[in-house]
Design a protein around this nucleic acid. Structure first.
Lengths: 207, 207, 207, 207
DNA sequence: GGATAAACGAGACGGTACGTCCAGTCTTATA
DNA sequence: TATAAGACTGGACGTACCGTCTCGTTTATCC
């Protein structure tokens, strides 16, 4: 943010990240993760996170903008166990089979009760906070989407889907229906559903 | 609900809907609608609604379960101006043209800043409250979806889409991508986007 | 009150006492008495009285000015079981013995836990409501005090106390100390205490 | 209070008095004092005190048990302007004159409208809250009574009152009647009344 | 290695809103 | 027309958290 250096108006002096306590940071993120599962996102409070983490409230306010930012960070840290190697989807040459593998896994994840609370928490936050939505796209969805698009590109090169296919749109076609069904709880999330989505999408993208 | 007679557990005695003040009901819903637009859903408070409506807080708590339920009702009442005649989509015989008309309208609606706040409010609430989600499906989405499916059915009878097409899935294919893009703000909502969605969906559903 | 006839300003029309439901009146007073004992005066509510009595709240507001008025009436009705024959103190000719009899009884009454709650309720109300205090003096304390003064007058005529003794003051001398000790819980209420008060008072009043 | 260590039941963690804001404390007490005078004890609310004092409600609830406790503290702080030197009554050697001086002052105080509200407030609270009554005896009445008893003791030593006189009872004889008359508004509070009380009491205590 | 400055835990603070309770008024339907 | 029932506006209750603000207490460079 570095407001001071940019504007010269600074009132709130910036904390020095070099001196940040990693112990506290980790305790906060872990407490946030636990509490989202225990009480749900809506009933999650900064106060409870601080207490559970054994951390002063100020420490949280010092390093995060909002409750949403903490939760976001918590699941960001979780989803990438720190690893940095690029994500890659299976590529057997058979785009249909590969996509079904991936979509079945995704559907299973969405149907898993243990993912329920955190994903809903994240989604709630993203809806109303454009900043977090941007971060989400950049840090979480982005890399994954890139991997998916890479696989689609490879299929396009292999002539399995139309050369002029809009890959962003293709992803939306795959994941949008699933996301909506999950969000509105408007139907079952089964492997068959995953397969059907892949079939339809591939038919739509056919050359 | 008549909880008493069903469960014998009831302690909170049910209010008698016959004696409900319509004046208060309407004032609350209108205040809720105004305030969602003015301050957004997250900063909306029951207290503010009561004050704006000139109503005791208890009157709100007596008739609605939560802030979400009030807002939901507010937009439910709004979306159906009381009319009861069934919703119907245009049917010129040309499914592509008809769907494009409808989707362009929908996309425009989602892009309209005046719809922004209420739809996000509704979505936020639906994510975390299965009850409201069910009500949403039944009272708001349901009738509209039924009309859409009727149009698709007519197209199917005309041989424009596959006889074995799953119409629920078809709807998800049309609206899921749009909804996701809007929610995540991951791309522009233009008439071209609407057209592209229709094109892809119809291709996927082709006999 | 008859505000209408006196001022011609009346807005609130007076209820007609002739049509008053004696059943409701009695139910209210009994409920008030019970509830004072159960929850104490401070936590007593009109609503609870109405509910317990099986009476509409309006019926209470129609016939009583305040919670205090109801409680007052309740104990007024109780203290005089409806009887109207004048109260009289024992008169054996021995003022000391007679007063000790009476004072011991009074002290016992104040010390009795069953009298605790109602008397404190009454006193609380009287402190802050001059109207009720006046009613108290007139309807409850008055007749009793008159009886006490009659006995003292008889003693004065018998030459047992000074001819110029102020009988009102004499009563205060007898009952004020007791009342204060009870109110402040600043000492035990025993028969010996009663006797000591009588001894001192009589010594003070001696010719 | 250290309830935890004594009972092991405590859940509510005790605030740390060392960190208490003296600024807030004083503002609350002053606001309470003002408001009792302006609206009376019965209509006094914690909310109003907090607002007037510019203090959060929680700050009041953190440090006082009840409205009564605040008001009590307010007048406790007032009555002893912080001074700690022991209270002493005049001792000219003439017990009658000295007592009349003191009682006339007390009577005047009770008759003073500015004392009316606070004393009634205090009394109301004391009647129904044994804890506050105990505090009252200990912190307010106690020291004063001790001073009065010291004066009576000196009179006893001088042979002006009986050697076996019960001094607590003597005080009740002096102040009980006054207190009752004031409370019930059953008679005028004049200097003559004060004198009469002293005369009677001294006659009762005469050797 | 001791000084010193930042981040830290703790938690009190002024506030806002919560959801509940009750006051006192108003409305409806019995009797 | 008085009543029982109970919905209404209004306002205080006591609680929960917010985000800010001291407090000492670590902790981590810099002299």
């Amino acid at each position: 943010m570095a407001r001071a250096s940019l504007t010269g108006v600074s009132a709130a002096k910036e904390p020095n990240p070099a001196r940040r306590s990693q112990r506290s940071r980790r305790a906060v993120l872990e407490a946030a993760r636990e509490l989202v599962l225990e009480v749900g996102y809506a009933k999650l409070t900064i106060e409870a996170i601080a207490a559970r983490a054994g951390v002063g409230k100020q420490t949280i306010y010092r390093w995060w903008r909002s409750k949403g930012a903490v939760v976001f960070d918590a699941f960001l840290a979780l989803s990438r166990g720190g690893e940095e190697e690029p994500i890659a989807l299976p590529d057997t040459g058979d785009i249909e089979a590969d996509l079904k593998t991936v979509m079945r896994a995704t559907v299973a994840e969405f149907a898993d009760p243990r993912f329920e609370a955190p994903i809903r928490a994240l989604t709630t936050e993203i809806i109303n906070d454009p900043d977090l939505a941007a971060q989400y796209r950049e840090k979480l969805a982005g890399p994954v989407d890139e991997a998916k698009k890479a696989r689609l590109r490879s299929a396009r090169d292999a002539g399995q889907i139309a050369v002029d296919a809009d890959l962003d749109l293709a992803l939306e076609l795959l994941y949008g229906p699933l996301h909506q069904r999950w969000l509105h709880r408007s139907g079952p999330l089964t492997p068959e559903y995953a397969d059907a989505l892949v079939d339809l999408t591939l038919k739509a993208l056919r050359p």
